[in-house]
Amino acid sequence: MPRPDPRPVFRFAPSPNGLLHLGHARSALLNAEMARAAGGRFLLRIEDIDATRCRPEYEAAIYEDLAWLGLDWERPVRRQSEHMDAYRAALARLEAMDLVYPSFESRAEIRRAVAARPGWSSDPDGAPLFPFSRAAMDEAERRERQAAGEPYALRLDMARAVALVGEGLSWREAGEAGPVPADPAAWGDVVIARKETPTSYHLSVVVDDAVQGVTHVVRGADLKAATSVHRLLQRLLDLPEPLYRHHALVLDEQGCKLSKSIGSESLRDLRARGVSAAEARHMALG
């Protein structure tokens, strides 16, 4: 039997739902440089579970932009849309532990419920916590509505999950003197799958990192709080714990983080106005 590859493994995992910008470039360049310095491997993963927003032309642009920056990565590239069975298997394990339930509340119903509760708590990203509970609907009714084909989200019963894992959940953060305490309960009953998609970002990212043997997760500081949910899922699914590093974000002139959703200048735009790859690398890392 061949011995496992002992080299550290880093990855850059963009979603092909828009064009990459300097924030993505920073993550990709940091991962590639850290892999090189450690004598490790640099992987590219395409996180394309959102079939409504992800497009082939954006995936092609990812390869073009990274190559322009001077990066290379191992082949084949893992595309999440080709591994739904792995996510279904992980979801089934959570269901077998009675940690998952379907919720049928629409976005409008959730907004109304939150509006009726002034001062309702928000998750670390600033979104209101799910304002309903598993106990609010009989399990038999949930099964009937599922069987009837109604749309639903599959949520993690956070209270049960946290109780099952117990106290002391934490993660290792590069540069931190000790373990960082995890607080997954701050996210409430997060969505981990939907009727039409057997996974979510939270579930697929921990499955993928485990399958690919990722040892170092280097990503933006905006994802640091989500690590609490990822560590919870890793413990529940008996998955290995990577070392995390959450780097500072690239900000625009107004001090806001770059984002596809607000039309931040893309790497393609930079090329079009004559910015060189070397200049773009400096802008991303400077």
Rank of each mutant, 00 (worst) to 15 (best):
G274R: 08
A67Q: 01
P16I: 09
A28G: 07
L30P: 04
A153Y: 01
G178L: 05
R26M: 07
R271L: 11
W68C: 09
T215F: 06
M84S: 05
P240I: 06
Y244T: 10
R111Q: 15
A32T: 12
G40L: 10
Y58V: 13
A221D: 02
P128C: 07
G39C: 04
L239T: 03
S27T: 06
R134I: 05
G286C: 13
Y101F: 15
E173R: 13
A225H: 13
K224M: 13
A278P: 02
E74R: 01
R11P: 07
S15N: 04
L66N: 00
R160N: 14
L66Y: 09
S204N: 03
H83L: 03
A163H: 15
R36K: 10
M34K: 15
L94A: 04
A13L: 13
V190P: 04
S200G: 10
D48E: 10
V250H: 07
F12Q: 02
R273T: 06
T197L: 12
E59D: 00
A116P: 08
L71Y: 01
V180G: 11
E241T: 05
A61V: 06
V250D: 00
A163F: 10
M137I: 13
L258E: 05
G119P: 00
Q212G: 00
F132N: 00
P14Q: 02
P242E: 01
L232Q: 05
W68A: 03
K257E: 06
Y101P: 05
L164E: 11
H230G: 05
S170R: 12
E95K: 15
D238W: 11
H216Y: 08
V217D: 05
L156S: 04
A186I: 14
L43E: 09
A35D: 02
E265P: 03
E150I: 11
A116M: 13
Q146P: 01
R3L: 15
D125W: 13
A186P: 07
L239G: 09
L251E: 03
L22V: 02
P184M: 09
E176W: 11
W73K: 02
L30I: 14
R145Q: 08
V250Q: 00
I62V: 14
E241D: 14
V165C: 10
D48W: 01
E265I: 11
A185K: 12
V250M: 09
E265C: 10
G40N: 07
E47H: 10
V206L: 01
S121I: 12
A278H: 08
E173A: 15
A96Y: 01
S170T: 12
L203Y: 07
S170L: 12
D189W: 03
D183L: 15
L30E: 09
L267C: 00
G23E: 01
D138T: 00
F12P: 01
S170W: 08
E95I: 11
R117Q: 14
E47R: 06
R36Q: 10
P184G: 14
D208M: 05
